[in-house]
Simulated assay, not measured.
Amino acid sequence: MASLLSRSLAPAPALIKAARRLVFPDQCPRCGTLVAEEGGLCGPCWRDTPFLAGLVCDLCGTGLIGPDDGSLPHCDACRSLPRPWAKGRAVFDYSGAARHMVLGFKHGDRLDLGPHLADWMAARAGPLIRPGMVLVPVPVHWRRLLARRYNQAAVLTRLLAPRLGLAHLPDALRRCRNTPPQSGDGFAGRAAALEGAIAVTRRQQPRLAGRPVLLVDDVMTSGATLTACCTALLAAQVPLVHVLLLARAHQRA
């Protein structure tokens, strides 16, 4: 009886949420302006955020010109460069307010942006999900991890796991050496720098074998890092890799 009474007197989640909003009003995650909806952008930030919707490349998620007629087209870059993954989607073009948010999350300790970014990524992930799929983040080298204190891709997979109902393996991949950051070298230069730099961890290989993987990263530029990760996964008997990104940056081959 006491247990039933305590449950009946417990505040409803809607009341708790309303009370919290009275004390902590919802704010735009980009600029801090008060907004009417939790997790929503204010008007100016929404207009300055280039969400990728409509017709997009089926491999990298970049926006394409034309009607969304249900076809699965590829952009020029993905037609000309090897992409060992089967499908990909991205939330933003890497410009405007999207670039500001990604940089804040990645380099500015704006981990408070994580839930908002994960919500947007989960909304784009539908075409990528397969039965038994596991989430795997693109790894960072331990030296860079010490300097940055967190791997932003691993933060995203942890937040995405309950949203998508998938298991995640944050340590499935490792960087065997500290490669330089993205530069203007294009795909060929980046691919050469990354050769042999990413491997599947021995401890997690049995959990990966035979299961499709959703590979997660913040920004795709040339695609060389994703290619190196995907190549390592496929060599570890992963049958299928899809890619989920926060942003797609413009690059040259």
Score class of each variant (00 low, 15 high):
L169H: 06
P162F: 10
Q27H: 12
P73M: 04
R144H: 13
G43W: 10
R99Y: 06
L72D: 14
L55Q: 10
R203Y: 06
G66S: 07
A172V: 07
A36C: 02
R175F: 12
Q205S: 13
G70I: 02
R130N: 06
P239I: 05
P50M: 05
G88C: 09
Y150P: 03
F187P: 02
T62I: 02
R47E: 15
P44E: 13
R30H: 12
K17S: 15
G66M: 10
L240S: 10
P181Q: 04
V216N: 14
R148H: 09
L34M: 02
S183R: 10
L234N: 01
T179G: 03
A18W: 14
L41F: 13
R21L: 12
A36N: 01
C28H: 12
S95I: 01
A19V: 07
W142R: 14
A167W: 11
G40D: 14
T221Q: 10
P181C: 03
T201I: 05
D76K: 04
L164C: 05
D93K: 02
R148L: 12
V219R: 02
Q182W: 01
H100Y: 02
R30I: 02
A98G: 04
A167D: 15
P139F: 05
P162I: 04
I129H: 03
C45I: 11
R177C: 09
L113E: 06
A209E: 08
R149H: 14
A97H: 07
G108W: 05
D109W: 10
D217S: 08
T201F: 07
R79P: 01
P127G: 09
A118F: 11
A167H: 10
P139K: 09
A188T: 15
S8L: 15
E37Q: 14
L117H: 03
A118T: 10
P239S: 11
A118V: 08
Q27P: 00
Q27I: 11
A10S: 15
V213K: 01
L41I: 07
R79V: 02
A192T: 11
Q237Y: 01
V243G: 03
Y94F: 15
I16V: 15
A191E: 15
D185K: 05
K106W: 06
L52Q: 13
L59I: 07
V238N: 09
R99W: 08
L103E: 13
P180K: 04
G96F: 06
A10L: 15
P170M: 00
R177D: 12
L41Y: 11
A228D: 09
R124F: 06
L244A: 05
K106R: 06
Q204V: 07
A90Q: 06
P131H: 13
E37S: 09
R20S: 11
C31I: 12
T221M: 12
G126Y: 01
A77T: 10
T225C: 08
P73D: 08
G40Y: 02
G96R: 02
A199V: 03
A2H: 12
G114C: 15
P25K: 05
Q251P: 00
P11Q: 04
V102E: 11
A90M: 00
P44D: 08
Q204M: 12
L128H: 14
P115G: 06
L9F: 11
I65W: 01
P131D: 14
R207L: 15
R7L: 12
R202M: 00
R30T: 06
W46T: 08
A191G: 08
A86T: 14
A147H: 08
A98M: 04
S183H: 07
P84S: 04
